[in-house]
Design a protein around this nucleic acid. Structure first.
Lengths: 339, 339
DNA sequence: GTGAAAGCGCTAACAT
DNA sequence: ATGTTAGCGCTTTCAC
């Protein structure tokens, strides 16, 4: 590995100039810059990030903390963030908390503190006050994605509005008995999202004067399997079967579609189903849904951090940015069959 | 942020002793160690990884390169690797190559070279000679997972044997017209796995004297959607419809199950289906499969690298380790219906 | 616009 | 077993 002084010697300049030319910090004449770049290329020189970081205090690395990896939403956000970071020359260090609590503790008390990241993106994670405080003492910018963290800048769709929109779509089609599959309490510890979505659903029903019945709510764990079992309960009910199901995620909605099928109910004739996400599989299942755009959320999180890390004249981004969402109507929703 | 000298002062020892006590390198008396640990804890001291890396040459960080993130296999391997790394005090820096070629190039020519990682894990990635060479000049250990890389230590199941086992399961049940859904050529550029699996299938048929018919092969892209479309072609065939389908992945097998359902075929009476993976959803769909254990593969990859990075008296692990796999019979496979 | 030189915070010889 | 000290390879004042 060639070092900076070899490049300097080959280019006939000082190491300081090489540093300036390659990093873009400070002024270098165009001619010199070219010479330096040529020398660097010839030697295959790449800065040592450690030396650079130690001297400058910039890590060119950001930490991403997620509760799971194998869920469409999380991996999509990460993909978006990764791509944006690569463009900025940043690395992405991943902390997956899916293990036990000890793991989580060591990530916050140890890993994130060793000066390896310039900033942290927390995805759908309800951080404790202690955790937020720990991060704050480091003076590391922190941005949340998906589910608001109190006191922290967060990128999140308006879950209440999204749920309301989904429910209103069903109401507008003429449904009156609309069931909801939401998250369970356990889930809500980490993300408030289940509660928010349920609120939007309730509000839409209330405004429309539609049936509000505790029997029409089932909780599940955001998986296809969970959605399947919940929908079976809902649709198997001997009387007052709902004509439509609004699931808080596409995966649960897909489970509902499969459950309806197994019960011999046809969709959308006997039951309409709508989800949230626009999951990769939504189109395949003909699932109507409210699309959110997790890749874009990941990219946006990165842009916010870049703005903060490299202060320019631009004004800072606003604190709680509402994200775009969009109703996508496919074949899983229709008017209820005439009685 | 407290520095090492503050800890040294508080503990009443030299910085060298603090370094030794905290890192475990070199001998420190138990009493001193305790004092140092107490002082460090009191000050909330965490080493600066940059300073440490710069001085020692150890990064305590390993790079993981993947072609996709939102596939069960990849995210599972990463989860396994992440957990093992955390235990060893290592960070995991993720490089997702799902973008364009330029991205891939910059990862290999720039990101991996800036001395940020001690080693690299490449998941299901067919590296070019140039890429392997680049990594070799860095003298960074490299281990592949899932799909052999020539000249590189690789963790991989024996794809031929796995495919053979799946096929033999169907043969033993009495099936004679067994179709295969494998990968397409495009896919094979990155992983040889499709070819290997097809070979195992062919070999099993040949040995059993069963029907080998090009009509019984369809290629797909390893997704549920892809498997669905491929299975429709296979099962919709007006004559010579296969009685069983062996799909090269569980996701494609699940697609096949859905396709059979949509065609009004019952499973396993009209058609048996078997996959490879033991995907999270396999149990839900009653899918018989050959389980592989990606989390374990990720962990094992880490252990190999740790052995290499911290040489002990133990002999090095063998070069191409065959991994465990296991036939799991659920409800998707059965004897073909009597004619 | 460019160079000289002082660190960045730690580790690893080398002493003792 | 512990202390002293010379770097690790860069960035960044401060001069010019």
């Amino acid at each position: 590995m060639a070092g900076i002084d070899e490049v300097a010697r080959l280019a006939g300049v000082s190491t300081a100039t090489v540093s300036r030319a390659l990093s873009g910090n400070g002024h270098v004449s165009p001619g010199t810059r070219l010479k330096v770049e040529a020398a660097a290329a010839q030697l295959g020189y790449v800065v040592s990030s450690n030396a650079s970081s130690l001297a400058s205090g910039r890590m060119k690395n950001i930490g991403v903390v997620v509760p799971f990896l194998n869920r469409w939403f999380f991996s999509s956000v990460i993909e978006g963030a990764q791509q944006a970071l690569l463009r900025h020359g940043y690395d992405l260090t991943l902390y997956n908390l899916s293990g036990d609590g000890a793991e989580r503790h060591s990530v916050f008390e140890h890993f994130l503190l060793r000066q390896r990241v310039d900033a942290v993106i927390a995805i759908s994670l309800e951080l404790t006050e202690a955790e937020v405080a720990r991060l704050h003492t480091l003076e590391k910018p922190l941005v949340g994605v998906g589910g608001p963290i109190p006191g922290v800048r967060t990128l999140t769709i308006d879950d209440v509005a999204v749920a309301r929109l989904a429910t209103e779509h069903l109401l507008a089609l003429g449904h009156t008995r609309i069931a909801h599959i939401g998250g369970n309490a356990e889930y809500d510890v980490d993300f408030h999202l289940p509660t928010n979505r349920r609120e939007g659903y309730e509000a839409a029903l209330r405004d429309a004067g539609a049936t509000r019945d505790p029997v029409l709510f089932q909780s599940a764990d955001f998986t296809i399997q969970g959605g399947y079992h919940a929908a079976k309960q809902l649709l198997g009910s001997p009387r007052g079967r709902p004509t439509a199901i609004f699931a808080a995620s596409d995966e649960m909605a897909i489970g509902s579609i499969l459950a309806a099928r197994d019960l011999g109910l046809s969709m959308p004739r006997d039951v309409s189903v709508i989800g949230i996400d626009d999951h990769d599989l939504a189109d395949f299942f003909g699932l109507s849904t409210i699309a959110q755009f997790p890749r874009v959320q990941g990219e946006k999180a990165v842009e916010i951090l870049m703005d903060e890390l490299h202060p320019t004249v631009r004004e800072p981004a606003p604190s709680n940015i509402p994200l775009p969402f969009e109703l996508i109507v496919r074949s899983s929703t229709a008017r209820p069959a005439a009685e």
